[in-house]
Design a protein around this nucleic acid. Sequence first.
DNA 1: CTTTGTATAATTGTATACAATTATACATTT
DNA 2: AAATGTATAATTGTATACAATTATACAAAG
Lengths: 220, 220
Amino acid sequence: MEEYEDRSLRGRVFVKLRENILSGVYKENEELRELTIGEELGVSRTPVREALRQLELEGLVRIIPNKGAYVVGISQKDVKDIYKIRSMLEGLCARWATEKISEEQVTELEEIILLSKFHVGKQREAPAEQVSVLDGRFHKVLYEASDSRILEHVLSDFHKYVKLARKMSVGSGDRAEKSIEEHKEILEAIKSHDADKAERLANRHIMNVMANLHMDSDNI
Amino acid sequence: MEEYEDRSLRGRVFVKLRENILSGVYKENEELRELTIGEELGVSRTPVREALRQLELEGLVRIIPNKGAYVVGISQKDVKDIYKIRSMLEGLCARWATEKISEEQVTELEEIILLSKFHVGKQREAPAEQVSVLDGRFHKVLYEASDSRILEHVLSDFHKYVKLARKMSVGSGDRAEKSIEEHKEILEAIKSHDADKAERLANRHIMNVMANLHMDSDNI
DNA sequence: CTTTGTATAATTGTATACAATTATACATTT
DNA sequence: AAATGTATAATTGTATACAATTATACAAAG
């Protein structure tokens, strides 16, 4: 669904606006004028309008008819809530994946873990970025393995949210290694068909990620 | 966020299209042409386009750039998945509500239960409709009581989904009475500050609702 | 000085025009 | 007859024009 997002002007405007809202470029309650944004991005009002309507549905923008579009943004508490909700749903996802995962997907997850260990080992050339990408891929495969497009959809949304918001926070120290270790444990539980354990581990994994974030500023 | 949906043309088109997709008027993979829909609803392409872009974000429509918009719809399995996910999240919602609910909200819930009993009692003049509205209000207050706009947002979305899809299925017999009884038990648990119990009851409540649905046809 | 009314400007809502892309029909070639 | 190329039509993508609504400035009244 999202693969085509960057091809159209609307898609690019949508991605750019979401990024600017989540990263704090646009502040809470700031008014987003269609013409102004269009001029900033070099497009007309039409794609801007469409992007704003989509952002409204995502809850990042509040539109008051005939009046304007206003940034909603997400607070520190929102991020925490998302992690708690995600924790539950990632658990459910791991449970369903245990029942539905294919051989190919298991292999894919093993490859991702292998690559993650490799990249986190050599602590040079932007390791965080590479490891972050692999983390995203790990969870994405898990979502697909759950064989539930509904669950996949909602988890992907949340994942995008926190991925962007996370850039503001700083994950500390040796968290990356521990995270990969947890991925490995989750996969082991899935492979041994222990759905309860997989759910519990996935659950805790997300809570650990959250606990590692230092969320000091009020707005993310 | 949704209160203004019906005032603008876009809002009306959006609601109408979603209704037609979820109720099966538009079939799976059917192409939705902007001009055609605009003519059907008596509007130009612009509001139709905006509505389609929103539906894409909701996952009900798949848009292929420069090609068209196609109905995705939801399957029987999707509905079941939504209920399972909702079950978990309504549990979490009840837990948080236990910690955060206000006196006014408790009163509001008590009123809704009282009214529900009244309406289910006199089995005349479209009782199902009235009881359904009250059911919606009960859960809405609970969402607000959780004091988490994120959880409220995702649960509201799911609730809308199944509310529309449910019309296709047939809830049987004396389910309404039992449902109200369950609402009452959840509220009692919340009032006695027993978060574990509230979560467990809310959990089971949604699963009971699902179990009561007769989902025979392949597409809902 | 504050309030209220009104004219003006700014902004959004919708429709339409034009450009770019894709689908279709049909002739041409093999 | 099947495959391919090309012209045409249909559809979407974007920009712009116009209408409706809301905000702003400022004068007049109290």
